[in-house]
Amino acid sequence: MSDNIRILIASDIHAGYGEGKKIIDEDSFIGLEETLSHAAQQDVDFVLLGGDLFHESIPTRYTEHKVISLLRKYCLNDREVAMQMISDPKEVFENSQFKLVNYEDPNINVGLPIFSIHGFNGIRYFT
């Protein structure tokens, strides 16, 4: 085991963008799959999504299904996760039904953790 941490950083996936448009309707999902596939091939320790996983704040059922399917395909496996959460779970999960991070849950086989930062779709810059 190495002391190095390998992180794949991606952002602005915008899953669901172009949904229903003939030429680009699957592009965002293809981009997400390429990202996750590359992460798996490069054997990264985790993926950091720097915002805007979904294009809409309330994605369609189709978009949710596509994203969950890709996460299951690439993130659920028997690969050992060489990280541990050192924050106090009582503080981190105090208002949650979950009491530990999912990659440490013995009932879920997370082999590729993803950490996502909430993005804001709609920032306007004025000069």
Rank of each mutant, 00 (worst) to 15 (best):
L112N: 00
M83V: 03
I86M: 07
G111T: 03
D78C: 01
N102M: 14
L112K: 00
Y103F: 15
F120V: 04
D105P: 10
I117Y: 08
A82S: 12
V81C: 09
L112S: 00
N109Y: 06
P106T: 12
S116A: 15
Y103R: 07
V92C: 01
F120E: 01
E94D: 03
G111Y: 03
V81K: 02
K99G: 06
I117N: 04
D88G: 05
P113W: 07
L112R: 01
S96M: 10
L100G: 06
E80S: 13
D88S: 12
V81E: 04
M85E: 07
I114Q: 00
D78N: 12
N107M: 12
F98P: 01
L100K: 14
L112G: 02
M85I: 10
F98C: 03
G119T: 10
G111Q: 03
M83S: 03
E91K: 14
G111D: 04
V101K: 10
I108A: 06
E80P: 09
N109F: 08
F98Y: 12
E94W: 09
R79C: 04
I86D: 02
M85H: 04
S96G: 02
N102F: 12
V81G: 01
K90S: 15
V101R: 10
Y103H: 11
F115D: 04
V81T: 11
P113Y: 05
V101Q: 13
Q84M: 05
M85P: 02
D105C: 14
L112P: 00
E104V: 09
E80T: 14
I86V: 14
K99N: 09
L112E: 07
N102E: 14
Q97N: 12
N107G: 14
Y103G: 04
V92G: 01
P113F: 04
P113E: 08
I114S: 01
G111S: 02
N107W: 09
V110E: 00
R79S: 12
Q97I: 13
R79Q: 14
S116V: 15
V92W: 01
P106L: 05
H118S: 12
N95A: 07
E80M: 10
F93Q: 00
L100M: 11
N109H: 09
E91M: 13
S116F: 14
N102T: 13
S116H: 15
D88C: 05
Q84S: 07
E104L: 13
S116T: 15
L100N: 09
E91W: 04
F115V: 15
Q97G: 12
F93C: 01
E104K: 14
K99E: 05
N107T: 15
Q84C: 05
I108Y: 03
N109R: 12
M85K: 04
N109I: 02
E80H: 11
G111I: 01
S96E: 09
Q97R: 13
G119H: 08
D105G: 08
E91R: 11
S87R: 05
D88A: 06
D78I: 07
G111W: 04
D88M: 05
V92R: 00
A82D: 13
Q84T: 11
R79P: 08
I108E: 09
K99V: 03
V101E: 08
V110W: 03
Q97H: 12
V110Y: 02
F120G: 00
M83G: 01
P89Q: 02
K90E: 15
I86Q: 07
Y103M: 03
I114F: 00
V101S: 11
E94Y: 10
D105N: 15
P106Q: 04
I108R: 09
P113M: 10
Q84A: 05
E91I: 11
M85D: 05
S96L: 07
A82M: 10
